[in-house]
Simulated assay, not measured.
Amino acid sequence: MIRKHLPSNATLADVFRDLAEPEEYLRRLLGNMRFCQKHHGDACVRIGVSGKGTKGFAPSYRVDYMASDGNLVAFNGFGGTSHSAFTGTNTLETNWSHGHLAIREVQALYDDLKKDVTLRARWAND
């Protein structure tokens, strides 16, 4: 079986419309990002690039924060379907994208998606 890989600099913004359940995925991802933000003041997310980049997928992701020296530090990795935390080893060894989105950018994606869902539902009822 041939696996498709995402580009090494892919971000959630590049793939979120292809997610299996984008609203639920983003909601749960944001919950994990907020936990990091609560403890470290900010959060950003990278996605796993070794999974399939086709419609209906749920990539694993890593939440990072900015250290005082300006470097990104891994907070934890999470499974894309379960949103459960990885072990420390898996968090560091998985193929993560070089690109990332800040929590405010992920929140904007979620807000836009919610608006789209609301508009589609309103149009369906007209």
Rank of each mutant, 00 (worst) to 15 (best):
A43G: 04
R3W: 00
Q37K: 14
G56M: 10
R3A: 04
T11R: 11
N76V: 05
F86G: 00
I47E: 03
A10C: 14
T89D: 15
L101R: 06
D42M: 04
R62C: 13
F16H: 10
H5T: 14
L30T: 07
G70H: 02
G48T: 02
G79S: 11
D116L: 12
D64C: 14
Q107G: 03
H83C: 04
R122T: 13
D116S: 15
E93D: 11
D42Y: 01
R46Q: 07
F16T: 05
V49T: 15
K38W: 06
G41C: 08
V106C: 04
V63L: 08
Y61N: 04
R62D: 01
A74Y: 05
S50Q: 13
R62P: 01
N95R: 12
A43L: 02
A10D: 03
P22R: 11
L72A: 03
D116F: 10
S82Y: 10
R34C: 05
M33H: 02
W123H: 14
H100M: 09
L113Q: 04
D112R: 14
A74R: 00
I2Y: 01
A108R: 12
G51A: 05
V15S: 03
H100V: 00
W123T: 07
A58I: 00
T118E: 15
V106G: 02
S84D: 12
R27E: 14
D18H: 11
I103T: 05
M66I: 12
L29Q: 10
A121W: 02
W96F: 06
K114C: 14
G70T: 06
K55N: 07
L26V: 05
Q107F: 00
P7C: 02
I47H: 06
N32Q: 15
G80P: 06
E21G: 01
T118N: 12
L72G: 00
D42S: 12
F35R: 15
A124E: 08
R3G: 07
S60A: 12
N9T: 12
V15T: 11
H39L: 14
T87V: 00
E21I: 07
L109T: 07
C44Q: 03
H39Y: 07
S97V: 05
L109Q: 08
K4P: 01
H98M: 14
P22M: 07
H5W: 03
I2L: 09
V106F: 02
I2C: 00
H83P: 07
G79V: 00
K38L: 10
Q107V: 09
L101N: 01
R62A: 10
